[in-house]
Design a protein around this nucleic acid. Structure first.
Lengths: 346, 346
DNA sequence: TTGTATGCGTTATCAA
DNA sequence: TTGATAACGCATACAA
């Protein structure tokens, strides 16, 4: 069942291959009559240009790659990615591009990069000196870093991690919390340092804590999942020495803390205040609704895609300023000296 | 900055292109010494085989396409897709494949299909006689239908939509509900009939309702989003003629109903019972937690990918039996004659 | 307006 | 164990 090629159409229509090619890519250069005939024959034969052959010839594939440092089963556990893709998709739509998901292949992100045919990459959470980014550079493929650091070579789209984290911590401190635990995101790549945005968020939390003269916060690593949040909560000390407030670097982990705390008969926010990060849609529906740091994820995706598309067209683009974050106060945080506290402790 | 090709490596290493190709694809056929030398030179030069050229030659691209009938910004609003991709990803991982998202390009799904270079498709919610499926057939690309209908030409992976829907409706009927509203999913493609799974779910709901001798349910179309669910609720009659129970075909819409009902000062479940469909993770965290029909989404993805991979290797595969669905009873449903009702109406 | 000829970078067939 | 060489299917500079 060999596929029908341009040559088949050409001979069937009694023209050259060039004419057929023009019919698809340069219709103006063909006579009205021949154009219609060629198109008709192509239609009848069910001809479509072979994408790989076209890509080889034009040096463009019409797809952009989304470089994710972990397995799909892992990264898609986080609604964050869905939202980012909504943003990317908006631009893909507009520019007739498709989106290729590129997780590590065979455990190697570098290998995956070499295998795929894309016109550009958007890389998630990879620092500019990551070896995967190096490979992309070396291949000369345009690249936009998301949730990374500024770099001379690549535009980076970031949010104000530090400001958001600082606002979150200050919120808790203003409510009187002093014993605070921080749920830190794990490194995205095995054996690597924490990703850049984690470092910035940590700095933001600490800045507020230091400014308030509060004791240093305990930190515990929690993956981006409800289960991981729950486990992180379990590992925290309870009672007089336990935290009264938790700062989580992801809403998913925060939601896990919510559930685990309530299972442990703690009331949120009366006994434990919880602040998330991201403001994924679900954080508005939890009970209690989650206080969190909102970042404009969809917009981040759109912006990254827009920059990449510029890059692909040969323009050089500077990194935009970080997108702003805002604290969204809902019901999962309250004053540490709330009235309920007395009742319960009685 | 022209990319380094196999010829560059060949001449630099003083061997033929064939030898270089062998070094990557058929190392056994090369002498130890030459193999190492070629690989070393390739490394130094930063050589990687051009994916499009390789695809053209081997007739394999190493990627599978996920055919979605709507824009990415739309479909990724539904957590369902995230979960499905987790399932697909598990197999992609195992078989060194990447996943290409293929939404309509320029408004045309058929056009998108012709543009992309994939070894197979997984198509979502498309009936076997959809013109997009026809195009895939015509190109001779392996295809697995998900949430569709059985077909002679394509294996289809489905769930027991009818059974799940029936269980949901019966649950409400058993609780004494008689005035029931159904939130129907809109057609996935403009100007088309409802997708196959919608038809089956509707049949399931109605089967239970008929069996109980209850009056026919009102139906209202609601997209798969919280906002759409809210709007659907608004459009429902209120009070003595309004429904006491809502059957939604998606959890997202159900969550929207939850929120809108509570905003309208109805208590869930005392004043209004709500049943969703899918059992997305978030449905366990809402307040109240959502009663819903669970379908094994991740497993569905894994199964679909597994079948597609078989298909791509030339085997022919029959459609598996529909995956079973189960009713998950949480807190969003209760008896229509609950005690609270009297208190409130007093 | 249409056709000829060549390049795109690999893999694979066949010989050596 | 290695090397010429022919596909693979299309786009395009150039010629007619």
């Amino acid at each position: 069942v060999s596929r029908v090629t341009i040559a088949d159409v050409a001979s069937a229509a009694g023209v050259s291959k060039t004419a057929v090619s023009f019919a698809f890519n340069n219709p103006d250069r063909l006579g009205q009559a021949t154009l219609e005939r060629v198109l008709g024959v192509a239609q009848d034969l069910g001809y479509a240009p072979h994408p790989a052959a076209r890509a080889l010839s034009t040096k463009r594939s019409g797809t952009i790659g989304l470089l994710v440092p972990q397995r799909l089963a892992t990264v898609f556990g986080n609604p964050f990615l869905s939202e980012l893709i909504q943003g990317l998709g908006e631009q893909c739509d507009e520019h007739d591009l498709t989106l290729l998901l590129v997780p590590p292949l065979d455990g190697s992100l570098e290998h995956a990069i070499r295998m795929v045919s894309v016109d550009g990459f958007i890389s998630l959470g990879l620092s500019p000196d990551d070896s995967a980014v190096r490979v992309v550079e070396r291949l000369g493929i345009p690249n936009v870093l998301v949730d990374s650091e500024g770099s001379a070579d690549h535009p980076a789209v970031n949010i104000d991690d530090e400001g958001g984290a600082e606002a979150a911590a200050r919120h808790l401190l203003d409510l009187g919390h002093r014993r605070i635990a921080i749920l830190v995101l794990p490194p995205v790549r095995a054996q690597k340092d924490p990703s850049p945005s984690v470092t910035r968020r940590l700095a933001g939390y600490r800045k507020a804590i230091d400014a308030a003269g509060a004791p240093e916060a305990a930190t515990v690593i929690a993956g981006i999942s409800v289960a991981a949040g729950g486990r992180a909560f379990e590992s925290l000390p309870r009672g007089r020495r336990g935290p009264t407030g938790v700062l989580a670097m992801s809403d998913m982990a925060a939601i896990g803390v919510l559930g685990a705390a309530q299972s442990a008969r703690l009331r949120v926010p009366e006994d434990l205040s919880v602040v998330g990060f991201d403001d994924i849609p679900a954080s508005a529906w939890t009970s209690p609704p989650l206080t969190t740091v909102r970042q404009p994820i969809v917009e981040k995706g759109t912006l990254a895609a827009r920059i990449l598309i510029q890059l692909m067209s040969g323009k050089s683009v500077a990194s935009p300023r970080p997108l702003s974050t805002t604290l969204v106060v809902r019901k999962s945080t309250s004053s540490v000296t709330g009235p309920d506290l007395h009742i319960r402790r009685r």
